[in-house]
Design a protein around this nucleic acid. Sequence first.
DNA 1: GTCTATACAAAGATAGAC
DNA 2: GTCTATCTTTGTATAGAC
Lengths: 215, 215
Amino acid sequence: MRRTQEQRKTETRARLIDAAAELFARKGFHAVSAEAVADAADRTTGALYSHFDGKEGLLLALLEVWKQRTVEKLTAEIHQLPDPAPHFAAMWEAITAPAEDRGEAWLLLEIELWQHGARDPVFGPLITRRFAEIRGQLGEGLADWAEATGTELPYEPEETGALVLGLLLGCALQHRLAPESVPEELFVHALSATLGLRKPAAYPRTKTTPKEARP
Amino acid sequence: MRRTQEQRKTETRARLIDAAAELFARKGFHAVSAEAVADAADRTTGALYSHFDGKEGLLLALLEVWKQRTVEKLTAEIHQLPDPAPHFAAMWEAITAPAEDRGEAWLLLEIELWQHGARDPVFGPLITRRFAEIRGQLGEGLADWAEATGTELPYEPEETGALVLGLLLGCALQHRLAPESVPEELFVHALSATLGLRKPAAYPRTKTTPKEARP
DNA sequence: GTCTATACAAAGATAGAC
DNA sequence: GTCTATCTTTGTATAGAC
């Protein structure tokens, strides 16, 4: 039973990080006490401090863990698809998914992290790198797709990534408050138009048949 | 001298709201104590409580004051211009301006308000309305311009507003952390392309001459 | 209408037992 | 490695003087 302690250690870290992600997203970093995180993870503040040296350290660790998850989530197998539009739709659904699927928390946590990056000199470079990686992966994925299909993209990969991420975040922010203000089709179509993959004028008018869109 | 007390009252409100805007943007609502706001406004917490009934009330009042300012800032005289691109550039500069011009604070405060709207049931409807108003004004402004110049926009006014605001916010978020990742020209060009006002492929490659862009 | 002083609550952080 | 108990700091909110 020598492994029990090691396991416990790992599990505690994981539990604390999961609880922190949930709470920081839902209530915000400053609105959540270290004790609340510990309680949610079925541990105590003592354990939290011994592992992460406080709330800040926990946020830092959380950031590391989420780095991979996010990038993977957003960039999975773009270049394998004949048309990137379904992938844009998948991205959109991942980030706007209702609470049970953590999509809602995803956006809130991402914004929470951005704020810390914009305000805290320690977090700044870390979050900046995080966003750069996402841009890079998104851009590379689309560049690969373009090459495979013989399409010409009007921007450099990193620029492409910046625009995809920008429109995604900006639209998701609005969607979170007023879902009807940015329907999925609008986002997907606009993104395609932005990247020159389709004519903006081809956007379907939904004014006539708002219901029965998906029978 | 009967007016002195009335004046003092008005000035105190203004000072507190200004200080709150500054501090909430720079450090975040929860990270700022009521006393810190009062100090920055050269008043005491007593005055703050008598006027706004606490920090929450102050945030609420701040929201009201900023409602007009923001909309005006983003939507000034679009329809008077022959080409909306300069207006997009002006919007971009307003939101990405360095700290002295409050541009930096603008974005941070806007995101701060969004978070409260996404989390607090009381603020939710207020912030939602705020964003809807901005979308409406942006969309109407561009619709007016389109009509005046005989241009055809591919989206309904509110949709247009959502896309402009979305790309603006999403790009500004990234710009705040890494200014070089979203140059002004990229944003302006992409937005024009999104709205079908110009061909995406016409984007100028700046790779060859990164310096000497503005002598 | 504003200030000083203060009560009261909550959060961050640590020391020592298990 | 984790928990209990506790110390210290900080913040919210109010009561009463000016």
